[in-house]
Amino acid sequence: MKIWRLSTDRSVMSITTCSKNPELEKTTLKTSDSDFKGMPMLHRWESGLVLTRKKGRTKDIAHFDGLTVGFGSKTVQIVEPLLRGLVEFLPVQNNDAELCLVNTINVINALDLEKSDYSTFEGRLTYINEYAFKTDINYSNHPIFKISQDPGSFSLVTDEFRNLILSSKLKGFEFVELWDSESSEQMQNELEQKHRALIDFVDSLPGKRFNWDEAVKLIDSGEAVANGKWKLQINDKGNFILGQLEPNGEYFWIQPTYIPPTLLEKKWHIVEKSNE
């Protein structure tokens, strides 16, 4: 059995609540990505307008600000029997598609802290570098869930959910493998070696190295900077984002609320900007 991070590919539509039009701002959804922390919201939900930032080629799934996704009406109809009681489908208004934001309320203590590789700050889990999940949980009851240590993060899904999406030929879904219960130690070592090779390649790139203050100035001027598995840049909305290099060569991006102190001590070099 595998556990996957639910994500979207680059073909999907992108929706947002941000508007530079003051009049339009009055009707936009008042809920943001930071509100999705595994708690029920349907009982107090007030639908509002979400704006299309990019139309995309599919309406089966949409990327909302941050780590939240929206499902199209076709997708909701297909997955609702499997996900009943585990998520809330929160309807929103959009001129291009019929969408519901997905609020995963199934939060379980599934992360194996002894076998996972993670970072903390002031006792709070900040980043998970390598995932390991508890094996005494019946995951057939949890086709979608969030981990109790970080319920504000992305939704996780099992093979059952992924297979349903693939067999239904829904478009725009991306599943990033986080853990394989049947993976051998050799396979895990090979994955770690591949990841280390990618990090070493980034660190081997030529160019001047900059301290934190210098790096921030470069980022503000439109550059991207990197150190090892970490990458920093400004996204197309003008927000400061932090990326973590994954074994597949892609970066997983977040908009950090604070910067871990360890990053302030690193030396950074200019690299090509990524498409988040």
Rank of each mutant, 00 (worst) to 15 (best):
S274M: 07
A197Q: 14
T27L: 09
P256M: 11
N106R: 12
S168A: 15
C18W: 07
L264M: 15
I234W: 05
Y131H: 14
G48I: 05
S73H: 11
D150Q: 12
M41L: 14
I78K: 15
L198I: 07
S14V: 15
K146A: 02
Q186L: 13
K229E: 13
S32K: 08
E223K: 13
A224W: 03
L51Y: 03
G66K: 09
T68P: 01
K54D: 03
G85D: 10
R53G: 09
G123F: 12
N163D: 13
D203E: 14
L90N: 04
Q77A: 15
T75H: 06
I61A: 04
E190S: 13
F210C: 07
C100R: 04
F36H: 03
F154R: 06
V79D: 09
L113R: 13
F154Y: 10
I259D: 06
V202G: 12
F240D: 05
S7P: 02
S204K: 13
Q255W: 04
V92W: 00
P261R: 12
L99S: 02
W230I: 01
D200K: 14
S148M: 08
G243P: 01
W268R: 07
I254M: 09
S221T: 12
L166G: 06
G70M: 02
T158Y: 08
L264I: 12
E185P: 00
T104L: 04
R124H: 14
S153F: 14
N163A: 10
L164I: 15
S168M: 04
R124I: 11
E88I: 05
E223V: 02
N109D: 15
S184H: 04
E250V: 04
E214R: 10
L82G: 00
D203M: 06
P40L: 00
V102W: 01
S19V: 07
I147W: 07
N189M: 13
L232A: 12
Q188T: 12
D35H: 10
H195L: 11
A97Q: 00
S155A: 15
G123T: 11
L232K: 05
V87P: 06
L90T: 00
I234S: 06
R44G: 01
D213T: 10
G249C: 07
S116E: 02
G66D: 09
S155H: 00
K20H: 07
K134M: 11
M13V: 03
S140A: 12
D65W: 01
G38E: 06
E80D: 11
K20L: 12
E246P: 04
V102I: 13
A110Y: 10
Y139L: 06
K273V: 02
V87Q: 03
L178K: 08
E23W: 00
N141D: 13
I15K: 03
W268H: 08
R44Y: 10
S274Y: 05
L156E: 00
E190L: 14
L218V: 02
S34T: 13
N21A: 00
F121W: 04
S32G: 05
F145V: 09
N235I: 03
A132Q: 07
K217R: 13
